[in-house]
Amino acid sequence: MSPARPVRRLTVVGIGAGDPDQITVEAAETLRAADFAIVAQKRDDDPLVAARQAVIDRHAPGLQVVAVPDPERDRSAAATSTTSGYAGVVVDWHDARAALYEQVLLDRPDGDVVFLVWGDPAFYDSTIRVVEKVLAAGRADFVWDVIPGISALQVLAARHRIVLHDVGQALLVTTGRRLREAVDGGADNVLVMLSARFDLDGLEDWHIWWGANLGTAHESLVAGRVGDVLGDVERARAATKASAGWVMDVYLLRAP
């Protein structure tokens, strides 16, 4: 009777906002113990794959990287103009990702695997949901864990030397898509992630603390009264995208 194959371990690892120095000891040890890493690849020269590789080279040299072409997401106005339509598009995208990741695990039945996630896996990242879909399908066998990371929220606050809320004040974390909804609902201290546009009309007297590509060589920061610095933010965002090939920004808005 042959010995039972050990159950493989899958770990979702938060790797911080981009600086290899900001990865935790726990995360680094998990990378070194793994047999391979799965990363989504959006194009042939995807700079985010290169950034993940830099983290691996620093903390787990020799760890094999399996780059999986990321499925296309429907970004048409017809599909994303409503909240329900956007949610449906994202579910379809997650399903397609899960199928691709499952196939990698089936093609490689042995060895522990890690997923490298920007920042912390708890904040606007789909990897946990995708892993749950793979597990629910029942064809790939594994146990899994999540390792927290330093999020862009934390790095933004550190770079600007601020606390994200005043004494006793609430902090609402949302997306650029739902910023107006948050403000119209009465929120006066809002941290915005996944911002593709700046819908800040009427908020000229609010204060903004903005950052892009935090923790990388292309990091950019702007702070001030919205009406005074919005142009600076837009120019800095465009320059960051041009120089890095990608842009991930986050900002805090606070009412006067």
Rank of each mutant, 00 (worst) to 15 (best):
S76T: 15
A77S: 06
A77Q: 07
A79S: 14
T80D: 02
S81D: 13
T82N: 04
T82P: 03
T82L: 00
T83V: 11
T83P: 01
S84V: 09
Y86I: 01
A87M: 06
A87S: 07
V90Q: 00
V90N: 00
V91A: 15
D92H: 08
W93Y: 15
W93L: 10
A96I: 13
A96C: 11
L100V: 05
V104W: 02
V104H: 02
L105D: 02
L106R: 09
R108N: 14
R108K: 05
P109F: 06
D110V: 04
G111I: 06
D112L: 03
D112V: 09
D112C: 05
V113T: 11
V113H: 01
V113Q: 00
V114P: 09
V114K: 05
V114S: 07
F115A: 07
L116F: 10
V117M: 10
F123N: 12
Y124S: 08
S126P: 08
T127R: 07
I128M: 14
E132M: 14
E132K: 15
K133N: 07
V134I: 15
V134T: 11
A136K: 12
A137G: 10
G138C: 09
A140I: 12
V143N: 13
W144V: 09
V146I: 15
P148R: 13
P148V: 13
S151P: 08
A152S: 15
L153G: 01
Q154T: 13
V155H: 01
V155T: 11
L156H: 04
A157E: 14
A157T: 13
A157N: 14
A158P: 09
A158M: 12
A158I: 12
A158E: 15
R159E: 15
H160D: 02
H160T: 03
R161S: 09
I162Y: 08
L164E: 03
L164W: 02
H165D: 10
D166I: 00
D166M: 06
D166G: 14
V167G: 00
V167N: 04
V167P: 00
V167S: 00
G168Y: 06
Q169I: 09
A170H: 08
L172Y: 12
L172A: 14
V173N: 06
T175N: 07
G176Q: 13
G176V: 14
R178L: 14
R178F: 10
L179C: 11
R180M: 10
E181N: 05
A182W: 10
D184A: 10
G185D: 10
G185C: 05
G186F: 03
G186A: 03
A187R: 04
D188I: 07
N189S: 14
N189E: 08
V190F: 08
V192C: 01
V192E: 07
L194K: 09
L194C: 05
S195Q: 09
D201N: 04
G202E: 08
G202D: 11
G202P: 07
E204F: 03
W206Q: 03
H207V: 07
I208M: 09
W210N: 01
G211V: 11
N213R: 05
L214H: 04
G215W: 02
G215P: 06
G215R: 04
G215I: 05
